[in-house]
Amino acid sequence: MSETHLELTKVGIEFPTPKGPFRALQDVNLKIEEGEFISLIGHSGCGKSTVLNIVAGLYGATEGGVLLDSREVDAPGPERAVVFQNHSLLPWLTAYENVELAVDQVFKKTKSPAEKKQWIEHNLKLVHMDHAMHKRPDEISGGMKQRVGIARALAMQPKIMLMDEPFGALDALTRAHLQDSLMEIQKDLNNTVIMITHDVDEAVLLSDRIVMMTNGPAATIGEILKVDLPHPRDRLALADDPTYNHYRSEVLRFLYEKQRKVEH
């Protein structure tokens, strides 16, 4: 077994509210190896995004902590790139310029202007956006925006990529295309990824492990499911695969039997 890349130890967080502190997370423990693809799944409001934001450094944990390569995470940084749910591209910059902003920041001193240009174009090509790289976000579709968001994260050459429901706002077909693109990229780059999702198929298709979270408040990790399917995976071939369907029903059982969402 290889060394632990990212480690969450007894992570908990409380948010102050007018009615007193609200405990969102409690005792979250997770070890992730390099090159692993992890999905976080759970009902909405269970604190998936909070976990991601703590790893990103956007929130500080109330107790416990996060280690990345044995160094404590206490602030945001480009080595933990985030792909945001609603793409978060700067609307006044083109796709190219959006990636450029990240590249200029991360490779300020290490790449020459020509190398930067090549690197930006390389990453836009990876997500199949090289044909529209000089278009602004309002000129391209939602799926394309998210591709640019992924290119921006990839271009930071992060140690770990954090994806916050990256395909949640897209229609089913576009989502499938982007999942295929993501698998293709993973085959080459083998990034470490934590992805939040509420889509069971997406989780089983993409992940090496699925982390299922209990309902909040004081949410924590309920079960972890190891998905032992060989890469590369093909959605059509897997549709009738009994192992795939077994994993799928495991996740469904967790979500709809053990952690049935109680609507208030």
Binding site: A56, G77, V82, S88
Partner: peptide
């Protein structure tokens, strides 16, 4: 907040943040 998060993840300096994100916005 999304754009502020982008700026934080990129570790933009205060000045770059103002120039590249706050001013155009």
């Amino acid at each position: 907040q999304d754009l502020k998060n982008v700026s934080q993840v990129l570790n933009l300096s205060w000045w770059t943040h103002v120039r590249k994100i706050v001013l155009p916005c």
